[in-house]
């Protein structure tokens, strides 16, 4: 119990650092792909430090709760991932974390922020079933909903859940706000909806959201690593592979519409994951 606690707490402390490095690497590599030099690797940390040095500016005071909630819940999800908690509950907490951001964006009277929030909800609805199916897949392969069982499994998940893994890739693309799914907020979409969900968060509150994004980066790549949890190196390799694919697609694709994304996720990707699950039943 106590070792699990330390593991969880260590994850909560280390995840933003790892996530920040991942995001830094992402920016550097993207720049290189575009023929630019790009920012320093540590740029995400500089950004976050700066944001916490800025003045807190809000449109209404209730916003602060949503920013805290967003950050705290993603940290909690990371904690649960590291301690091997219940996978389904983990997903619900993750969803609630995103929802906090959405509600925060909708709580201000700003049309841009509203549009971003609406899109973010659609995105959530688009990927949520895939994630749940993934957890079901873990359950079918291991007979338990606890992530602990995935860590202790003797056979890598990827061998039983190859299609779910592909489906999971698109979830990661959505979560990282990568093209073709960078709908709600991104560094590229600022012409259209300014900054979407994060628009009206400024200073430290934006910093919290950036920090939460670092957590997300580490969390989702960690989840990708779960597909080969038997071997740490393979897990890292898998996570790196997911990272590389998202990066590449981001630079190859144009942004698509919300409705397109919803349809795509609920037909093609959902179908992929479902096929895998049905196959598991039949086995």
């Amino acid at each position: 119990m106590s070792t699990r606690m330390t593991l969880g707490l260590a994850a909560v402390v280390l995840a933003p650092i790892v996530g920040g490095l991942i995001r830094g690497l992402d920016r550097v590599l993207t720049a290189r792909l575009q023929g630019r030099q790009g920012p320093p690797l540590l740029q995400p940390f500089f950004d976050i430090i700066k944001l916490f040095q800025k003045e807190p500016v809000v449109v209404n005071r209730t916003q602060v709760f949503y920013a805290y909630l967003h950050l705290a819940l993603i940290a909690l999800a990371t904690f649960m991932l590291a301690t091997g908690g219940d996978a389904l509950m983990l997903l619900f907490i993750l969803a609630f974390s995103t929802l906090a951001l959405v509600i925060g964006a909708m709580s201000v009277r700003s049309p841009f922020s509203r549009i971003g929030a609406q899109r973010e909800i659609v995105m959530m609805v688009a990927y949520e079933p895939i994630l749940i199916l993934m957890v079901i897949g873990f359950y079918l392969a291991n007979g338990s909903f606890r992530l602990q069982s995935v860590y202790e499994a003797s056979r890598p998940m990827l061998l039983s859940l190859p299609l779910v893994f592909i489906a999971y890739l698109s979830v990661v693309m959505i979560k990282f706000q990568k093209s073709p799914f960078d709908l709600a907020t991104s560094h590229h979409a600022h012409q259209e909806i300014v900054k979407g969900v994060t628009l009206e968060f400024a200073g430290p509150y934006l910093g919290m959201i950036e920090l939460a994004h670092c957590y997300e980066a580490a969390f989702f790549l960690g989840l990708a690593g779960l597909f080969w949890a038997t071997n740490a190196w393979m897990a890292a390799l898998l996570a790196a592979g997911v990272f590389a694919v998202t990066l590449l697609l981001d630079n190859l694709c144009a942004r698509l519409t919300t409705h397109w994304m919803f349809r795509f996720m609920w037909t093609v990707v959902f179908g992929l994951a479902l096929t895998n699950i049905i196959w598991l039943y039949w086995r």
């Binding site: 509600i103 659609v122 609805v125």
Partner: peptide, 9 residues
Amino acid sequence: IFFWGKWLG
């Protein structure tokens, strides 16, 4: 989540 979220917001 969809319909609760948009209404709550």
